Amino acid sequence: MRGENGVRLRPPRNTLDERAVAWWRAQWLLTTAVPTVVLAVLGAFLEPARAWLLAAAGAVAAMGLVCTAFFPRWWFRVHRWEVTDEAVYVRTGFFWQEWRIAPMSRIQTVDTVRGPLEQAFRLATVTVTTASAKGAVTIAGLDHRLAADLAERLTLITRGTPGDAT
């Protein structure tokens, strides 16, 4: 099957780096820890609301632990990416799958980003910006060296690809 730009639609072949699972788990834990600690501290100091604040802290912590255990592994199974000479393919999501294809002739910029947590896990995110109203195509959870090589490769391919990238 071919899309409107003549690019063949098919599942991308590559998985993310296995360390992305731990990275996502760390993100969940940090995201859950902040409201849990705030609720627990408030519960410790506010006598009239102590019971429900501590119960809420426990509920937030429990949900965070369940999400930390479940979602990162699931995301790892469904997130895929691939770069060919014609396009960048990215598939994310499970229930609501999103397939993004950026033809090389439409690519405007290629960026790599490494936040503090990504640096700790030696990971990076490659962002491919096009003129699409849908926004950039991102591949998060790549080994930082692979991300740098991929950005360089995309730059070389797009430089040699005819088109106006608009």
Rank of each mutant, 00 (worst) to 15 (best):
G93C: 11
F45G: 13
L39G: 00
P12A: 04
V38R: 05
E47F: 06
R145V: 15
G6F: 08
P72Y: 01
R50G: 05
D85F: 08
V126F: 04
L39H: 04
V83H: 02
M63T: 13
E18G: 00
A165M: 12
G163W: 13
W28I: 00
R2Q: 13
F76M: 02
V60C: 14
Q119P: 02
N5Y: 06
V113W: 06
G64D: 06
D85N: 11
D143E: 10
V126W: 00
Q97D: 09
Q119T: 11
W24R: 09
V83Y: 02
V78R: 09
V128A: 01
G163C: 07
F76D: 01
T68P: 03
L53H: 11
R2E: 11
V41F: 10
D149E: 14
A40H: 04
T125F: 10
A22N: 01
T36I: 03
L154C: 08
T84A: 03
R8C: 04
A120H: 13
A165T: 15
L150I: 07
V66P: 03
L65N: 04
R13W: 00
T166G: 10
F76C: 01
T84S: 09
T130H: 10
A133H: 11
G141E: 02
V60M: 08
V60F: 10
T36Q: 03
V113E: 14
R50K: 13
T130D: 05
A51T: 13
V37A: 15
F95P: 00
W99C: 01
R80S: 07
N5S: 14
T31D: 09
C67W: 02
V60Q: 05
D17V: 04
L46G: 02
P116E: 06
A26F: 11
R25D: 06
I157K: 04
F45D: 07
A55H: 06
R13Q: 11
L16E: 00
V60I: 14
A61S: 08
V128I: 15
V128N: 02
R122M: 06
W81F: 14
D164R: 13
R73N: 03
G115T: 10
L42T: 11
Q27G: 09
W52V: 10
A51N: 07
G93H: 07
F94P: 00
T15D: 08
E98F: 03
V7Q: 09
A165P: 13
W81D: 03
D143R: 04
V128D: 01
L29I: 11
H79I: 01
D85H: 08
T158W: 00
E82L: 07
E18Q: 11
V83C: 01
A20T: 10
R19S: 12
L54H: 06
V37I: 14
G160D: 15
T32D: 12
A61N: 06
R145G: 04
L42M: 13
L117G: 06
